[in-house]
Amino acid sequence: TFVALYDYESRTETDLSFKKGERLQIVNNTEGDWWLAHSLTTGQTGYIPSNYVAP
C-alpha cells in the first residue's frame, strides 16, 4: 500500500480524490505518471498522480 503525501482533488471523472495520509492500494502502475489506485479509506477506485504518494 501507498500513503498520500498531499490532498488531491479529482479533475476528471476517472481521477480519484484523496486526502493526505490516506492509504491507497495500487491496482496498475504501468500508465506512466498516473496510476490506477483503490482507496482503502473510501473504497473508490480511480487514477492518481504517482508523485502524490509514497510507499
Rank of each mutant, 00 (worst) to 15 (best):
Q44F: 09
T42S: 12
G43M: 07
E31A: 13
N51E: 12
K19Y: 06
L24I: 07
T14C: 15
R11A: 13
Q44Y: 09
A54G: 10
G32V: 11
A54V: 15
T45Q: 09
E9D: 13
G32H: 12
I26T: 03
T14V: 12
L16A: 05
E9P: 05
I48H: 00
K20S: 07
L24T: 00
T14Y: 14
Y52A: 15
K20E: 07
L36G: 01
D15P: 01
A4L: 05
E13L: 11
P49E: 03
Y47T: 05
W34N: 06
H38I: 15
A54M: 12
Q44M: 14
A4M: 06
T1K: 06
T12E: 13
P55H: 09
G21R: 02
D15Q: 15
R23Q: 13
S50Q: 07
T42F: 02
Y8Q: 02
W34M: 13
E13H: 10
S17Y: 03
Y47R: 10
Y8E: 01
K20W: 03
A37V: 13
P55N: 08
R23Y: 15
L24K: 00
A37L: 02
D7F: 02
T30R: 10
Q25T: 12
R11P: 09
L40N: 06
P55V: 10
L16E: 00
I48E: 00
H38F: 15
Y8N: 02
L40A: 07
S39F: 02
Y52F: 13
Y8K: 02
T41H: 11
H38S: 10
V53H: 03
S50C: 13
D15I: 09
E31W: 12
V53I: 09
F2T: 04
A37D: 00
L16Q: 02
T30F: 10
Y47K: 06
L40C: 13
W35P: 02
G21A: 03
Y52R: 08
T45N: 06
K20V: 08
T45M: 12
Y47I: 06
G32A: 14
E22S: 03
T41L: 13
S39E: 01
A37I: 04
T45G: 05
T30V: 11
T30G: 14
E9F: 10
S50M: 08
G21Q: 02
Y47V: 05
L5R: 04
H38R: 15
E9M: 10
T42Q: 04
F18P: 01
N29E: 11
L40M: 11
F2L: 07
T30K: 12
T30C: 13
N28G: 15
V3A: 04
L36M: 08
L16T: 03
H38W: 09
S17E: 06
K20H: 05
L5E: 05
Y47L: 09
S17K: 05
L40R: 05
Y6L: 10
G32L: 11
D33E: 13
Y6Q: 10
G32P: 15
V3Q: 05
